[in-house]
Each structure stands twice: as structure tokens, then as C-alpha cells.
């Protein structure tokens, strides 16, 4: 886990990481206001998941942390040192993903905890709390996987991530059912909405897939992203 340790420490020391922490902080403030002021607790819970937690906080934090970890290595050319080892390129990609996933989970932990509090406040079943945690963890894994992959393809991966998250995850996927099935946050919603009552499920607005399918999709996104990232790293021409 040497690569993971190097990347994890680098991410935690980056100023960008702590600037990104403003987003979870905002989520906590908004969540707290919903917790204390909402008249319809279920609508507040659904709105927090659908409008803030998955498509913005988890998506942006995970993508930017992962993509930047790779592009920083490329920009500062420390990737040349990772390249002059016999460690398999796939393993380097996997360890980079693990490190950035762990860092992202630290950053989104409190907003996820806020979602759990909102679920309890809405009198949802205890399993809903577990569902929202699992959904957040898997969504973060998928965004990190894609961030690592795109980071190996372009040094502007963080910018592309912002465009993707703001346009696709936040706007486009809300309009069309087809687009919804191609959205990571929508699949996270499918897992989070697994055990809630039909009305709340409607407000969370997941895709037409089951939680099981959503889980498989998110895991597949991670697997395929890392396979392609390892392949890209082994084939790319470094300076």
C-alpha cells in the first residue's frame, strides 16, 4: 500500500482539499436548517439527498479529490517515480483510487451523518440510515474511479469533473429517464430509497432500476474505470 500512503498523505496536505471541505460544511449548515425548521421532515430528507448530498457534495468532493491526485502527480512529474517501479500499473491505479476514496469519505462523513439525522427525524426505518451510508460510500467510490480514470487522460480532469457534475448529475439527469440511468447520483438514490415509503421514494426520484442493479452498476463503474486507468497508465507517454 505504498502508493496509497503517498497519495493519501499528499491529498490531505493539499490546500485544495481543505478548500473543498467548504462544500460539506455548507451541506451541514443546510442540513441543520432542514433538521430544525422543516415542516415536512420526509420532504426535507428527500430534498437533502436528491438536491445536495449525492449530486453535489459526494460527486464534487470525490471527483475533484481523485482527479487532482492524479493530475498533481502528472503536473509535478512525480509520476515519473511511480513509473520507475515494477509495481503493476493497475495496482498503482487501484491504490490511488483507494487513497482518494478514503480521503473523500473523510470529507463527506459529516454531511452523510446529517442525512442519517434527517432520516431519523423523518421517522424512517433504521435501515434507511444504513442505506444512505452505503449509497454515499458507493457513489464516492464510483466518482473517485472516474476521477482517477479521467486524470490519467487529461490534466484538466477536475474541470471536466465540475462540468460533468454540474451539467449531467445535477441538471440533465433530472429531465430524461435515459439520462437518469447513466447518472451515478441517481443510482446512489436508488440504494438510499430502497426501504423508504413510496411517497418519499417518489420525492427522492431514483432511476427505474432496483437497489441491487444500482449497486452492481456502481461497482462496475469502479472496476471498469480502474481497469482502463491502469491500461492508460501503462501505455501513456510520460515526458
Amino acid at each position: 500500500m505504498t502508493v496509497a500512503t503517498i497519495v493519501f498523505r499528499r491529498v490531505l496536505r493539499a490546500k485544495r482539499t481543505w478548500a473543498l471541505a467548504l462544500l460539506p460544511a455548507l451541506g451541514i449548515v443546510v442540513g441543520y436548517m432542514m433538521l430544525t425548521n422543516a415542516t415536512d421532515e420526509k420532504a426535507a430528507y428527500a430534498g437533502y439527498l436528491s438536491g445536495l448530498l449525492f449530486p453535489l457534495i459526494v460527486a464534487l468532493v470525490s471527483w475533484v479529490v481523485a482527479a487532482s491526485a492524479v493530475t498533481d502527480e502528472r503536473d509535478e512529474l512525480t509520476i515519473l517515480y511511480l513509473a520507475q517501479t515494477p509495481v503493476a500499473r493497475l495496482r498503482t491505479a487501484v491504490e490511488t483510487w483507494l487513497a482518494t476514496w478514503a480521503a473523500s469519505l473523510i470529507l463527506v462523513a459529516l454531511p452523510v451523518l446529517m442525512a442519517a439525522l434527517l432520516a431519523r427525524n423523518a421517522d424512517l426505518a433504521a435501515s434507511s440510515v444504513l442505506d444512505v451510508v452505503v449509497a454515499s460510500v458507493l457513489a464516492s467510490a464510483a466518482y473517485c474511479g472516474l476521477g482517477v480514470l479521467v486524470g490519467f487522460f487529461t490534466k484538466r480532469a477536475a474541470i471536466w469533473g465540475l462540468v460533468y457534475v454540474l451539467l449531467w448529475e445535477s441538471i440533465m439527469s433530472g429531465f430524461a429517464a435515459g439520462a437518469r440511468n447513466l447518472s451515478i447520483s441517481q443510482h446512489a438514490r436508488a440504494i438510499a430509497a430502497r426501504g423508504v415509503d413510496p411517497w418519499t421514494r417518489h420525492e427522492i426520484d431514483p432511476p427505474s432500476t432496483s437497489a441491487g442493479v444500482a449497486l452492481v452498476v456502481l461497482v462496475a463503474i469502479v472496476g471498469v474505470s480502474l481497469l482502463l486507468a491502469g491500461r492508460r497508465f501503462s501505455r501513456m507517454n510520460l515526458p
Binding site: 498523505r9 509535478e76 512525480t78 515494477p86
Partner: peptide
């Protein structure tokens, strides 16, 4: 052949190692 790196040492030009370590 990545095994080459067990017997190859490289000093690249101009770039530093990880500054945080």
C-alpha cells in the same frame, strides 16, 4: 517489461520528488 526497474535507476531532469515526504 516492468521487471526492468528492479535493476534500473533513473534520475530525471529537473523534477523533484514528493515535497510532502
Amino acid at each position: 517489461d516492468l521487471a526492468v526497474h528492479t535493476d534500473l535507476g533513473v534520475v530525471p531532469d529537473g523534477q523533484g520528488l514528493w515535497h510532502h515526504l
